[in-house]
Design a protein around this nucleic acid. Sequence first.
DNA 1: ACATAATGTCAAGTATAATTTACAATTTAT
DNA 2: ATAAATTGTAAATTATACTTGACATTATGT
Lengths: 63, 63
Amino acid sequence: MKNLKLKSARAAKDLSQQQLADLCGVSRQTINAIEKGDYNPSINLCIQICKALDKTLDELFWE
Amino acid sequence: MKNLKLKSARAAKDLSQQQLADLCGVSRQTINAIEKGDYNPSINLCIQICKALDKTLDELFWE
DNA sequence: ACATAATGTCAAGTATAATTTACAATTTAT
DNA sequence: ATAAATTGTAAATTATACTTGACATTATGT
């Protein structure tokens, strides 16, 4: 299940996967895999992503 | 940083750590460690915990 | 058409979440 | 006071998130 909310929130900030990865302190592949829905990130990483994109957990990771 | 929101949400449902663990399909120690704040659970586990306690991610895992 | 940035994906390694087993400490009820 | 349930914690193992490096593909701009 792809995470399109994340993808579009990133687009709304005009950030590349690499730029978002840098803001969160993870690799580009990790961001890519999360958007693609391959795996199951940690809550701390989710929180960092949310902060980088000015969103909350419910907005990006709740169904 | 202990997760007191989780602890009190569990208490509000009158569930033991073991019962919540069973509802989420994880071990009691995992629930204990999350409440204690030792580590960094996966988002999917957080979502399962939220559903078991009728809460959202923001309510239990957002600061 | 060409160059460059952005994305998709894979394999091998490292870090750490989560498990099991076990026991001690604390709480709750009888 | 005693027993039973709940919680805290620890060591060893397994599962998996995440990294690094590399290459192919798709978009964006000149």
